[in-house]
Design a binder for these strands. Structure first.
Lengths: 211, 211
DNA sequence: TGGTTGACTGACCGCTCGTTCAGCGCGGTG
DNA sequence: CACCGCGCTGAACGAGCGGTCAGTCAACCA
C-alpha cells in the first residue's frame, strides 16, 4: 500500500496550493483573493491549479474542509477528556485559543467563509457545505452543556443558544487578540471567559465591601 | 430656511439610493453587490448614482454612516436611562435585539462591512472609517461596565474584553434568530444573555437538588 | 411657442478576473 | 540519438465589473 512517486508529488502539489490559498485568503479576504496570487504564493503557474482543482469554488471548499478537520480534531480531544464540566469547558476554550493563535491565517479564512455572501446559488451552496461544519461545533458544545444540565450542575437554559453565545464571544476575543499589539496572557483571557460563563460578573451582595 | 424643490428631490434620490444599497448589500453581500443592481433596486439608471456619489466607495461609506447613526442613537437612549446596572444592561441588549429585528437588512450590511477585506489600501481605509464606529459601541458598553465595577457591583475584569464578549455573543444570537423559523420570544433570549452575564450558568453547590 | 437647460439615461470603455489550451521542456524508452 | 508522454506554463479569451459621457427630453423661461 506504499505510495507511488506520482501520488507523492500530487499530494505535495495539492497541499502546497491549499496552504497558499489559506495564506492569500487570510491576507486579502475571500473576495479579493485571486487565482493569480494564490498560484504565485504556491510557486506554480495559474493553470497548474486547474490540474488539481476543477475551479475556484472547489479549491476554496476543499481547502476549508481540510483545515477545519484539524480544528475539530483538536477541540474534540479537548472536550473528550474525562475531567469535570468546568475543566472540560476550560480545556475547550483554551484549545480554541491556542489553535487560532497557531493558525492565525486559518482563522481569517474561517471567518471569511462564514460571512461570505454572493449570488443566490452561491449562498445555497455555502449553506449546504459550510454551515454544517459550524453547526457541528455548536452542537458538540451544546451536548457538553446539556450533559452538565442533566447532572444538575448547570441551570436549565437552551444549550444551543448558550453554545453559540460562548463560541462567538470567544471568537471575538481571539480576533481582538490578533490585532492587539500587546495582548494579555492567553490564560488571562481564557479565565475571563470561563469564569464569566460559569459564575457571571456580578459580585453577590453578601460579599460586597462597603464603599 | 425652507427647502427648495431641488433640495427635496436631491434628498429623496440620495435616500432611495442608500436604501437600495442596504437592501442589495444585505442580499448579496458587500463584494457581490453591483452598482447595476443597486441602480435597478432604486429605480434609476446606473449613471444617476454617480450624480449623487463620487464612486462606489463613497456610496457604501455614506450609506453605512447614515444607518449606524440610527443604531447608536437607539443604544445610547437605552443605556442613558437612570436605572440600576442590571436594568441598563437589559435595556441595552433589548434595544439591540429590537433594532436588528426591525432592520434585518441593515444587520447584514453591518456584518458585511465588518468582515470586508480587500486590498491593503482598502483595509487601511476601512480601519480608519468603520472600525471607530464599532469601537465606539464597545467603548460605551465598557464604560457602563467600568462604572459598575467602580461601584463594587461587578468583579474587576477587563471591561473592554467583557464588552466585546457580550456584544459579539449577542450578535450571534440575533443572527441565529434571523434564520430561525420559529425563534423563541425576544425577551427569552434577552433574559438568557443578561442572566448568564450577570450570574453565570452554574448552579451553586448549596442550591443543587440531590440527584 | 421656440429656445434653453440640466437631470437622467444606458451604450460604451478599460480593466481585472476565472478559465482555457496550444505549446514547452524534461525524464524515460527503444 | 530521436521520439514520445506528460506535467506544467502563461498568453489569450470572454464575462462582468466600476466608471464615463454624448445624447435625450420634460420642465421651464422669455
Amino acid at each position: 500500500m506504499t505510495k507511488s512517486k506520482e501520488e507523492v508529488v500530487q499530494e505535495f502539489r495539492v497541499q502546497s496550493i491549499q496552504e497558499a490559498a489559506i495564506r492569500v485568503i487570510s491576507r486579502k479576504g475571500m473576495a479579493a483573493a485571486t487565482m493569480q496570487e494564490i498560484a504565485e504564493e504556491a510557486g506554480v503557474a495559474k493553470g497548474t491549479i486547474y490540474l488539481y482543482f476543477r475551479d475556484r469554488e472547489e479549491l476554496v471548499e476543499k481547502t476549508f474542509e481540510t483545515a477545519i478537520g484539524q480544528l475539530h480534531a483538536r477541540l474534540d480531544a479537548a472536550m473528550d477528556g474525562s475531567g469535570s464540566f468546568e475543566e472540560r469547558l476550560r480545556a475547550l476554550v483554551t484549545a480554541q485559543f491556542s489553535f487560532f493563535s497557531e493558525n492565525r491565517e486559518f482563522f481569517r479564512l474561517y471567518h471569511s467563509l462564514r460571512m461570505t455572501q454572493g449570488s443566490a446559488s452561491q449562498q445555497r451552496r455555502q449553506k449546504r457545505n459550510c454551515q454544517p461544519q459550524f453547526r457541528a461545533r455548536i452542537d458538540r458544545l451544546a451536548g457538553l452543556l446539556k450533559q452538565a444540565m442533566d447532572a444538575g450542575e448547570v441551570r436549565p437554559l437552551d444549550p444551543a443558544r448558550l453554545a453559540l453565545f460562548l463560541i462567538e464571544g470567544s471568537i471575538a476575543i481571539v480576533l481582538e487578540r490578533l490585532t492587539d499589539d500587546a495582548p494579555p496572557a492567553e490564560s488571562e483571557d481564557v479565565e475571563l471567559i470561563v469564569s464569566t460563563m460559569l459564575n457571571g460578573i456580578v459580585i453577590p451582595k453578601s460579599k460586597r465591601s462597603t464603599h
